[in-house]
Design a protein around this nucleic acid. Structure first.
Length: 401
DNA sequence: TCTGGGGTCCTAGGACCC
DNA sequence: TCTGGGGTCCTAGGACCC
């Protein structure tokens, strides 16, 4: 089989970098992105733009992205803005502008495609690229057998920069797992090549958290077992890992620690679900704030309906998500006999879901989700099995129209 | 002043069918 | 009446990622 070469391209501090294009005077300053439109910069009396500071913020937002200057204060994405304000009160705060980021995302992906067309989308600011074919065409440079490959990656970086004025970091490796790790090793504006023989020196010293798919829970469990680095994980008996982490995850941990990953670069995929959710400014109660909650639910269903219509999809399963004070989260699903797209139908199904939840605690978040997606218009009659479910008696009829 | 919003995938149990 | 598997669909929750 021909040698595979995969690149993982990750835009550097993407949202923040896009904002810096708009406000170049902020370059080098600590800036975080997050929060609401009211923190839009505005012209002061002297005509100068006035920026919000973290200390001005009140509410429940989190940091989406922080510039490298801001990260020096210990603020990072996911951190609550109120908490970040304690660390860096003078840090500049900008609201998120997804439209601008999506536009920049389209531009950088198009720039990559001009050079390397086999791309897997991994969200707004990163992609995998299969360079295997192109790398073959580019032989060695001088006496460096991988020089052509590195030049190819550099060409991609240059093209992205020319098209967007933004920098990115690229990891090059024989598979997605290693390429993803590699792209983190020299940020920002990095270019890192990992060959199979580099595993022990470059990968094994890293924390198990560097593996995409090992999150906080798995890392903690591994740490409790005395396993911190990827090298230590690689030394573990696979049977022992399987015993503790299950057949699938245990075997995958073992393979990953040895740098093995056969997943292909997937250039096309269809969405499984679409959702909208919102966290309230203050916790709301199902009875006392019934009108407000009802209006919010209506809006969420309408937004979902618009998204479905835009993509020409309808959904056979509608679900809700509720998060209560204290952060406990519940979900309820309702599969329908026929797929729906209209806001009123979504709203009705969401109402059925709602009736199956104990709503005595106050709510901080509500969401609506569409799954079981199918193209609208094609074959309407796809409901051969209409199992009638006994609807449990509802203890409350809140939110009813 | 803890903890956003949009996703994917996995597990596990129960219903139901053969 | 009791005893089996296998397979699919549905639901709920949780881990993880960007």
């Amino acid at each position: 089989m021909a040698e595979r070469w995969i690149a993982h391209l990750d835009m550097d501090a993407f949202y923040a970098s896009v904002e810096l294009l708009r406000y170049p005077q902020l370059k080098g300053q600590p800036v975080v992105i997050g929060g609401r439109r009211e923190h839009q910069p505005r012209a002061g009396a002297d005509g100068q733009l006035q920026f919000s500071r973290l200390r001005d913020y009140t509410g429940r937002g989190v940091i989406t992205t922080a510039t490298y200057a801001a990260r020096a204060f210990g603020v990072r994405s996911g951190l609550g803005l109120m908490k970040a304000a304690q660390l860096a009160p003078d840090c500049i705060l900008l609201p998120v502008d997804f439209e601008a980021y999506r536009a920049a995302s389209r531009r950088f992906k198009a720039a990559v495609r001009e050079i390397a067309p086999v791309i897997e989308d991994r969200g707004i600011d990163e992609i995998y690229i299969d360079l295997s074919e192109l790398a073959q065409g580019r032989g060695s440079v001088a006496h460096d057998p991988l020089g052509g490959l590195k030049q190819l990656a550099q060409d991609i970086k240059n093209n992205v920069r020319a098209a967007t004025a933004l920098t990115c970091s690229i990891g090059l490796a024989p598979n997605k797992l290693l390429a993803k790790i590699a792209s983190e090793l020299d940020k920002p504006d990095g270019l890192t090549l990992i060959r199979p023989e580099d595993l022990a020196t470059r990968i094994w010293p890293l924390s198990v958290r560097a593996i995409n798919g090992v999150g906080p829970k798995a890392a903690q469990r591994l740490e409790d077992l005395g396993v911190h680095s990827i090298g230590e994980l690689a030394a573990c008996d696979p049977a022992w890992l399987i015993q503790r982490f299950g057949k699938s995850y245990g075997a995958w941990l073992h393979e990953s620690a040895h740098g093995r990953d056969e997943r292909p670069v997937v250039t096309h995929s269809e969405s499984v679900s679409i959702s909208h959710e919102t966290t309230f400014e203050r916790d709301l109660h199902a009875v006392r704030d019934k009108a407000e909650l009802g209006a919010i639910l209506d809006r969420l269903c309408e937004a979902l309906a618009r998204d479905l219509a835009k993509k020409n999809l309808s959904a056979r399963t509608i679900g809700i998500k509720l998060r209560f004070e204290g952060f406990k989260t519940v979900t309820r699903d309702q599969t329908l006999e026929a797929p729906v797209q209209a806001a009123a139908d979504i709203r009705h199904a969401a109402g059925l879901c709602l009736k199956r939840v104990d709503l005595s605690k106050r709510l901080r978040l509500m969401g609506v989700r569409a799954a079981g997606l199918e193209a609208t218009g094609a074959g309407q009659s796809s409901a051969p099995r209409a199992r009638v479910k006994s609807e449990r008696p509802s203890n409350q009829s809140l939110f009813d129209e």
